[in-house]
Design a protein around this nucleic acid. Structure first.
Lengths: 120, 120
DNA sequence: GGATGAACAGTATGTTCATAA
DNA sequence: TTATGAACATACTGTTCATCC
């Protein structure tokens, strides 16, 4: 059930989902940790995602069947439960990544065309 | 009265305004001719602007004080009047272009980071 | 039918509120 | 206070409608 691709630029949601897949591959983080990690990553690029976009992106990845979630006590503590994510369908995740590559290339091409056409 | 810059990606409207400034510099075209020209330009990039985005972008450039408009019979005909555009404030146009350059560079940087971080 | 523009509708995304621990 | 999520509000953009040649 692929979303129809936005015609002009890729949407923030799609961009975040790509990074969420990467983070789930690499480390175990819960929602707000993910948020802080990504804020750090993108700070130099003037982009600061919000908690609600992160959660919505995670939920969308679950609706896509790519991730699922489990509750577990936060590292170090015994009491507070937080939500972690893992892959439900790794093949689907790979397919999503591959698709995003095409879209990212297209968008870079469009923006670079604008730079070429309008400057110097 | 600059619009606050979208944090994630530049908006379609801003992108179109940049190209509209370029077209007004280069040739005299009215709305639907501009639309067809830009459809041709971006076809290879999977982007197809709509007539209503073009008109809204033109109107916004007038509201910004950058362009103004005049009616004139369509080339070749005597009867039908169409709307052409010319610069009202060329300095402001240059300022807009300069600002967009920064934003385009930022966006390309963000997308290329995503390519670098997520693929090979 | 071509040209311009406005109205309307849907979607994308940010801000605020609710709940729990 | 931190964590999660939903609700709400707004911004962006595409589709449809209206009007005028």
């Amino acid at each position: 059930m692929a979303k129809s691709v936005s015609t002009f630029m890729l949407r923030q949601r799609a961009f975040l989902k790509l990074y969420l897949i990467k983070l789930v591959e690499e480390e175990r983080l819960y929602g707000l940790e993910i948020l802080e990690t990504l804020k750090g990553e993108f700070k130099a690029y003037g982009y600061k995602p919000t908690h609600s976009e992160i959660y919505k992106s995670l939920h969308e990845l679950m609706a896509d069947g790519i991730l699922d979630r489990y509750r577990r006590p936060k590292e170090g503590t015994k009491l507070q439960e937080v939500v972690y994510y893992r892959f439900n369908d790794l093949e689907e995740a790979k397919r999503y990544k591959k698709q995003l590559k095409v879209e990212l290339d297209r968008c870079v091409g469009l923006l670079q065309k604008a730079l070429k056409d309008n400057y110097r």
